[in-house]
Design a protein around this nucleic acid. Structure first.
Lengths: 343, 343
DNA sequence: GTTTAGCACTCGTCGCGTTCGAGTGCTAAC
DNA sequence: GTTAGCACTCGAACGCGACGAGTGCTAAAC
């Protein structure tokens, strides 16, 4: 694309992102390309529209970026995403030290949405992606045993099991916990093929134990996509955006967004590597076609285990959101590696 | 209040709740009191307004109930709250059996909001209100220990502790867990005065252990109001209500409602006993003055440990919401007592 | 004394036509 | 290839009148 067209597209995206008003040729000429006349810009804009980068809400309005325009902007035109150092520090402070990783990722989402004024998404790592540290069967009352699996970074997964004579079997449960912890510690779900677990089964005294204890454990370890947990935070920030002025349309979006299934679907749409941006219709969920999502994987060290991100109207501040999501994913990963920090 | 006035007030509330339109004397006469002329009704309505039960949006509109009108309705006029048996069964089915109590209360909120189309509130019991069943210190990695407290009904509370040489001290942690569990099992936070914990301290080998282990445990057990956790679900349902047509006002309400602090505050406003209804301005939070809240305590057996409820516009269907909240609180309490149920 | 018919009055909503202006595309000149 | 000029489009804003729901008051009826 010729340089002037790029500059015009960039000008339109920049302006539209901040004003939410269609941008006319006059505005572009005056504010962004003082050397060029509106008429020239009009010609270029007509070209850009024909190529699908821009669209016109109606004849007598200016242009607004189309999905393709945003895509080009994000890939080629956008200034390097950077967050003011002070904002970064504030985010880090707000993230602070949480009492446990669940709280930590929850706070990460919260801070991210507070700081950017878009809604945040967080995907909690499923046990499948983590390394098991500890398995523990704990009697709760006569008829119930709590299975607790502690994983990497201190993520905890519980399951309450029905169990007759739980209290009498305290020592059995104790031994069971020991055996399973020794066997599984350091293993990821991937390592745990049937064989290993069946071998384990042999170590357990009775067949009954095998069923009661091993089956739910395997379920917990192998839980599929329905086991993924996702949080959404900062919904009300979306209402600040003029595109959500229309309550009926907004309701449909938010309705869909409160379905955990949708969140998981949306967050699975990112690349595995760095920050990824999914713009408007690139997204599979039809109700969210006017929204964009910025996602980044996080996890202790470099191992991505979960996803964190932001969702907003396609007219979102990509530079800000990409910078913020990247920064937060990094902070979160760091913190998860160092774990709780001080206090 | 004379019978006719009561009937008129009831008619106005019933009608307004369903239509969201101010109710005129003609409507009342035709639909609810066919024997009486509109003029008579007008006189009565003027009285009711003077006494603060009704208000008039503007001169040429009908009347709508004032907070005081709703209050009288809820206390005296409302038909006995009852949920169709099939709805109750559907709710019970949806609540079903959850893998752990956290999931259970989450689902309870979700189902409650789905079924009533208002937003649901759930207050998770703080450890202070529960009985301790099990205390467990689990090494996670070299530098961290996870403190897990299992309480009544299988509620789980975690805290990640910094700890040097955690792995080497596995057996110490093991013994520590045993000692503390034996000492604390069956105790509520109330029983745990300083003395008991200090006695415990004597049983621990080193002063270092006392600090590392006991301090966070005491914190966890005694955590005050900031330790309360609250969930909000079904926000988008509120957008279906015509009073939330105005985005700006709605944003303020939702903004406030996403503050966990607010939720706790709101949910602490209920009575301890049965279902309680807090109407409009009776509520301390100024942004929620046009909202009402229906709350009920829940807990295993008859011991209330948490609160569940609904929030909606003051023009909410009190009969439905009271019935639903009551039913859900009962189901939840039952389930928490019986615990996970089958599967 | 209570109820009701009649009536003048209020006031918000809706539909309609007008104006205004931002922005465009096209044409012709530079 | 660029730009000035111009006719044209069309949405937003405004004003205006008609409409109608609903009221309060008065006076008559019960």
């Amino acid at each position: 694309m010729e340089d002037r067209k790029r500059r015009i597209l960039q000008a339109i995206v920049d302006d539209y992102v901040h004003t939410a008003e269609p941008v006319g040729s006059r505005t572009v000429a005056r504010k962004y390309l003082p050397g060029v006349s509106p008429a020239t810009i009009r010609n270029e804009m007509a070209d850009l529209e024909e190529q699908g980068y821009l669209e016109q809400p109606h004849v007598s309005a200016g242009r607004i970026p189309a999905d393709r325009g945003y895509r080009f902007y994000v890939d080629e035109l956008m200034p390097r995403p950077e967050l003011p150092l002070e904002v970064q520090q504030e985010m880090r402070r707000e993230l602070g030290s949480a009492p446990d990783p669940d709280q930590l990722i929850y706070r990460a989402g919260r801070t991210l949405s507070r700081r950017t004024r878009y809604a945040s998404l967080v995907l909690k790592p499923s046990l499948r992606r983590l390394t098991v540290r500890h398995v523990r069967f704990t009697p709760v009352d006569r008829a119930h045993v709590l299975l607790v699996v502690v994983a990497d970074a201190g993520f905890v997964y519980n399951r309450l099991l029905q169990w007759s004579d739980a209290t009498e079997q305290a020592d059995v449960l104790e031994r069971l916990s020991g055996v399973l912890t020794r066997a599984l510690a350091g293993a990821t779900a991937r390592d745990l093929d049937r064989t290993l677990l069946e071998q384990l089964g042999d170590e357990l005294p009775t067949r009954r134990l095998r069923e009661l204890a091993l089956t739910p454990l395997m379920e917990l370890l192998g839980q599929g996509q329905e086991g993924e947990q996702a949080y959404l935070d900062g919904m009300p920030f979306l209402l600040e955006q003029p595109e959500f002025r229309d309550v009926e349309r907004t309701r449909q979006v938010l309705d869909r967004l409160q379905e955990p299934q949708t969140l998981v679907e949306v967050m699975m749409g990112g690349d595995v590597g760095d920050v990824s941006v999914v713009i408007g219709r690139e997204q599979p969920v039809s109700e969210l076609q006017r929204c964009s999502v910025v996602l980044a994987p996080y996890g202790p060290g470099d191992r991505p285990v979960g996803v964190i991100g932001l969702i907003g109207p396609t007219r979102m501040d990509y530079r800000l959101t990409v910078a913020a999501v990247r920064a937060m994913a990094e902070m979160l990963s760091e913190t998860l590696e160092r774990l709780p920090g001080d206090n």
